[in-house]
Structures are given as C-alpha cells and as structure tokens.
C-alpha cells in the first residue's frame, strides 16, 4: 500500500506536467488558453508533490486509518482475477457485438463462478431480452449487433 501511496501522486505529477508541457511547448497555445491550465496544473502538482514527499517519509495524514491493510499475494491475485473478469466484457462486446456478446459474456461469467446451467442460461436470456427490447426497440439505440468493424 505504501508503494501505491507513492506511485499515485507521482503519476498525477507526471500526467499534469506532461499535459501542461504539451500545451506550452508542443501546441504553443497563447496565454488566454493556457492561463487556467497553468494555475490548476500548478496547484495540482504542488499538492501532489507535497503528498509524494509525505508518502515517501511514511507520514500518516489526519483522518487516515492507523494501520492500513497491506495487500497479500492472495488478495492481489483475487483482485486481478476479478478485474480481468469484469474487463472481459469489453472484448466480448467488441468481438461478438453488443447484442450477442454481452449475454454470452454473462453466461461465461455465471458458469465460471459456479452458477448452475439453468440459472446462467435463464439470466443470460433475460439480459438478451432486456438489451433488445429496452435498448434497441424502446430507446432506439444503434447498438452494434455485429462484431465491431463489421457493421
């Protein structure tokens, strides 16, 4: 957790510095455009730098828990597994289209997490029906129903 406490403000500093730097040197915006980004970027970098120094020194801020829970190897593996499963909806929707991809993703998710075939199929079919009737028929959303790039 301590490494993340250091990494997060460091990333903010790099991000804000890069964006403001691009505006000043790459795009060369005039002062009217850059005035506010300089101000906000400056404040953001100053606050993040202060936090970075505090995090490196291990200083605990008022209002923070005394002993933050350190992640274990198991909890990190569990988080990675969970996050990958959730992000998996993106390739499913892109490769198979939203109409088929999302119910198939749900079917795979339910089965992989120990749900019975009956529950998994029933919920996936319900999701297919909701996607079709609510989004396509009722809300008239142009959902890509074919794989992305093959509309």
């Amino acid at each position: 957790m301590k490494q993340l406490e250091i990494l997060f403000p460091a990333l903010i500093i790099v991000f804000a510095g890069f964006v403001v730097g691009a505006g000043a040197f790459y795009y060369q915006y005039d002062m009217q455009v850059m005035q506010f980004p300089y101000l906000v970027g400056g404040v953001l970098i100053a606050l993040a730098t202060l936090r970075l120094v505090q995090a490196i020194r291990g200083k605990r801020l008022p209002g923070e828990p005394a002993e933050p829970e350190e992640p274990t190897t198991e909890s990190l593996a569990e988080f990675t597994r969970t996050a990958l499963w959730l992000v998996g909806i993106l390739p499913a929707a892109w490769l198979l289209g939203y109409l088929a991809g999302i119910p198939l993703y749900l079917l795979a998710y339910f089965r992989a997490h120990g749900e019975s075939w009956m529950v998994s199929v029933a919920l996936s079919l319900a999701a297919l029906a909701v996607t079709y009737f609510v989004f396509i028929v009722f809300l008239r959303v142009h959902l890509p129903i074919m794989p992305i790039g093959f509309q």
Binding site: I89, L123, F135, V141
Partner: peptide
C-alpha cells in the same frame, strides 16, 4: 456473482447508449 455482471452490463450498455 450474479448482481455484479448484470449491473456491469447495464453500465456498458448505458454508457454506449449515451453517445453511441
């Protein structure tokens, strides 16, 4: 395990629906 993916599907569809 049932609620999370169903809500995720709503999140994805709703986001796409907002601006296509």
């Amino acid at each position: 395990h049932i609620l999370a993916p169903l809500l995720l599907a709503v999140v994805v569809l709703g986001t796409y629906a907002s601006k296509n």
